[in-house]
Structures are given as C-alpha cells and as structure tokens.
Amino acid sequence: MDFKLKVWRQKNRDDKGHFEDYTAKGISEAASVLEMLDVVNRELVAAGKDPIAFDHDCREGICGSCGLVINGGVHGPFEHNTTCELRMRRFSDGDTIVLEPFRARPFPIIKDLVVDRSAFDRIMQAGGYVTVKTGQAPEANGIAVPKKIADEAMDAAQCVGCGACAATCPNGSAMLFVAAKVSQLALLPQGKAERKERALAMVAQMDKEGFGSCSNTYACEAKCPKGVSVTHIARLNREYLRAGFGSK
C-alpha cells in the first residue's frame, strides 16, 4: 500500500513547527502506523535527514508511550485502540494521512510528534497511591473483595496513561485519567482510608498542571484505548464532593 503523509515537524519546544509531506511506499497492510513510520524514517536516515521523532515502545498497546493524532482522531479515527495497534489495512491505498502530536496546554511538544506528558506523573505523585510501606502488608486474603468490586476496580485500573483523554477532550481535561485511579482505589477496601485526601490532592494537581475542566462531553470515553468508562468520572465527582462536604 502507498500513502501520502502530512507530518508535524517541530525542532524543539520553542520552534513554531510546520507540516511536511512524505510518501510511504510498499507498506504491508498488516503493518502498524508506527511500522509505516519506521519505513519512512529508514529512508530519511539513509538520506542523511533528521528522522521523524515519535514516542513508542511496547507496540502492543499497553505501555502507553505512543500517541498520535491521525486524521484528526486521537490514536486514529477508530475507537479503543492505541496508535501502535492501528493497522494500515484500516486505511485505503493512496490515502492521505495527517499525523499530529497530542495537543493540550499541559503537554508541551518536545520534538515533532513527541510530547511531554510528565504532568500525569505529577498527578499520580500527588495522591495516586495507597500509603503502605514495604513489609507492612497484612495477609492478602484477610479482606474479602467481592468479585464485582474487584472487576470494576480492574476496569478502571486498565488505564495506560497515554493521555488520549486529555488530547481528545475539547476542554483538554484529564478527568478520565484522574478518575481511573481515584475510582480504582475508592472501590477497593485497601484504598478507602485515604480516599478523601487522594481525590482532593489529585484534582488540585490536575488543575495546577493546567488541564481544563470536565463539561461531560464524554469525548474521552469514546477514544480511550482501554474503554475506561466515564462512570468512573462520576465516582471521582462523588469522591470529590464527599471529601469536600462529608464528615471527616
């Protein structure tokens, strides 16, 4: 398959950036978008040109490193996949494909398609954990966790932290990311002790990073590679209200 590419090139954080045209020829239909970029890059390197920088690693949809906006769709125009999982067979031969970085104020562009998502780490550091030191843990089966609760917590915990939610949200909000962690730990008995501090601290950090606020458009849920549900945002809202108004 052959494709015409329009790729965002930006030398560094301060550069203005622009689109550049490339062609990708003889791409296997089973290749992923990233494997197509590998081919383009090999040619660029051989020609002595600066290859297109993009984040990637596991290439099986779990590490959360990759993330491109493809033809206006975060992780591509389809639902529930990461960029690395998107195969070229979903496109037609000769298509023009536009590749842009994730765009949101708290995700500054480092180079080309690589963005700085360390804001997510700082949100996690603010409270995305259960305070338990190594060696303090009680017997694992000591507290029963009903299967339904464990399953719902797992649904939330699947978040890969790729940032698609914030990149696709018209408000650039990271609510789904924050909600996934708050909801997981609010559901499990192990996380309940700190639930109030956690909700308040993580939301405060999210605001501090400059993410927008949620206006319930649910754009995030539609594009989340793991399909994390916005019902977890509802639980985050509840946790936040409870922390603000509830008794100590």
């Binding site: 536009v98 400059g210 754009a219």
Partner: peptide, 13 residues
C-alpha cells in the same frame, strides 16, 4: 487549553 488547534477536525466527531 489547546493553544494550537488540530489541523484535521476529527476529535469532536
């Protein structure tokens, strides 16, 4: 919150 808009407007779909 999105200083530069996406070139292709697909995210709102």
């Amino acid at each position: 919150v999105r200083p530069q808009a996406y070139k292709v407007k697909g995210t709102s779909k």
